[in-house]
Amino acid sequence: MTVVYDPDGRLDAELGLPLDRDPHMRLVRAAISWTSSTTLQPRDGDQIALQLTGHARVVAAEVRRRCADLPSDAEPRVLAEAVLEEADRRLAQPRLGTLRCVQMRARQVRALYERLDRLDKVTPVRAQ
């Protein structure tokens, strides 16, 4: 699993960072399945939130890159831009290391991948 520390969102998809989707989606599914009775140590929660934040930023950069190939009024682009705006807003919030924070970031990663999958259906995938 590639862990990305990019709290300010300065990394760009052009750097060639792999999305490493499978292990991150396993973490997303696990985090979303946790309940209020799940004991999450603050340090663990902060590390998980940090990992999900970095990964969300990399996926968001890829979504932005794919959107650039679409006309500005194309429905897939408009929907992707709405998801990106929400991601930017949520990822700018401070990491608290709480269960709620971790789950919010996990849901954001999931939403970004869902949008990326939809863009894959309308945009040719560039050679990497």
Rank of each mutant, 00 (worst) to 15 (best):
residue 5 Y to L: 09
residue 6 D to T: 05
residue 6 D to M: 12
residue 7 P to F: 10
residue 7 P to Q: 05
residue 8 D to P: 00
residue 9 G to Q: 06
residue 9 G to P: 07
residue 9 G to S: 12
residue 11 L to K: 13
residue 12 D to R: 11
residue 12 D to Y: 02
residue 13 A to Q: 10
residue 14 E to M: 07
residue 15 L to R: 14
residue 16 G to T: 09
residue 17 L to V: 12
residue 18 P to I: 02
residue 20 D to V: 03
residue 21 R to V: 14
residue 21 R to G: 13
residue 22 D to L: 11
residue 22 D to R: 00
residue 23 P to L: 06
residue 24 H to I: 15
residue 24 H to Q: 08
residue 25 M to E: 15
residue 26 R to F: 10
residue 27 L to R: 13
residue 27 L to N: 12
residue 27 L to I: 06
residue 28 V to W: 01
residue 29 R to H: 04
residue 32 I to P: 03
residue 32 I to A: 09
residue 32 I to Y: 03
residue 33 S to Q: 11
residue 33 S to T: 05
residue 34 W to F: 10
residue 34 W to S: 06
residue 36 S to K: 08
residue 36 S to H: 03
residue 36 S to V: 10
residue 36 S to Q: 13
residue 37 S to L: 06
residue 37 S to E: 14
residue 38 T to R: 15
residue 38 T to I: 08
residue 40 L to N: 04
residue 41 Q to M: 11
residue 41 Q to A: 15
residue 41 Q to C: 13
residue 41 Q to R: 11
residue 42 P to M: 08
residue 42 P to T: 00
residue 42 P to Q: 04
residue 43 R to H: 12
residue 44 D to N: 00
residue 45 G to M: 00
residue 45 G to Y: 01
residue 46 D to W: 06
residue 47 Q to S: 15
residue 47 Q to Y: 09
residue 48 I to A: 09
residue 49 A to R: 08
residue 50 L to I: 00
residue 50 L to D: 00
residue 50 L to N: 04
residue 55 H to I: 01
residue 55 H to K: 11
residue 56 A to N: 04
residue 56 A to C: 13
residue 56 A to V: 11
residue 57 R to D: 13
residue 59 V to E: 08
residue 61 A to L: 05
residue 61 A to Y: 06
residue 61 A to Q: 04
residue 63 V to R: 05
residue 63 V to Y: 13
residue 64 R to G: 15
residue 64 R to W: 04
residue 65 R to S: 14
residue 67 C to N: 14
residue 67 C to Y: 08
residue 67 C to I: 11
residue 68 A to S: 08
residue 69 D to G: 09
residue 69 D to K: 10
residue 74 A to R: 02
residue 76 P to K: 07
residue 77 R to P: 06
residue 77 R to C: 05
residue 77 R to V: 07
residue 77 R to Q: 05
residue 78 V to W: 03
residue 79 L to Q: 14
residue 80 A to E: 01
residue 80 A to S: 11
residue 80 A to L: 06
residue 80 A to C: 05
residue 81 E to M: 09
residue 82 A to Y: 06
residue 84 L to T: 03
residue 84 L to D: 01
residue 86 E to V: 01
residue 88 D to P: 03
residue 88 D to Q: 10
residue 88 D to L: 04
residue 88 D to H: 08
residue 89 R to G: 12
residue 90 R to A: 14
residue 90 R to M: 14
residue 93 Q to Y: 07
residue 93 Q to R: 15
residue 93 Q to D: 13
residue 95 R to T: 14
residue 95 R to K: 10
residue 96 L to I: 08
residue 97 G to K: 11
residue 98 T to I: 06
residue 98 T to G: 11
residue 100 R to Q: 11
residue 100 R to Y: 02
residue 100 R to N: 12
residue 101 C to M: 03
residue 103 Q to Y: 02
residue 103 Q to S: 04
residue 104 M to N: 14
residue 104 M to W: 01
residue 105 R to Y: 00
residue 105 R to H: 07
residue 108 Q to F: 00
residue 108 Q to C: 12
residue 109 V to S: 01
residue 110 R to L: 08
residue 111 A to S: 10
residue 111 A to M: 07
residue 113 Y to G: 01
residue 115 R to K: 05
residue 116 L to N: 01
residue 117 D to E: 08
residue 118 R to D: 15
residue 119 L to G: 00
residue 119 L to W: 01
residue 122 V to D: 10
residue 122 V to W: 06
residue 124 P to F: 06
residue 124 P to R: 04
residue 125 V to W: 07
residue 126 R to H: 07
residue 128 Q to N: 09
residue 128 Q to F: 09
residue 128 Q to W: 11
residue 128 Q to I: 13
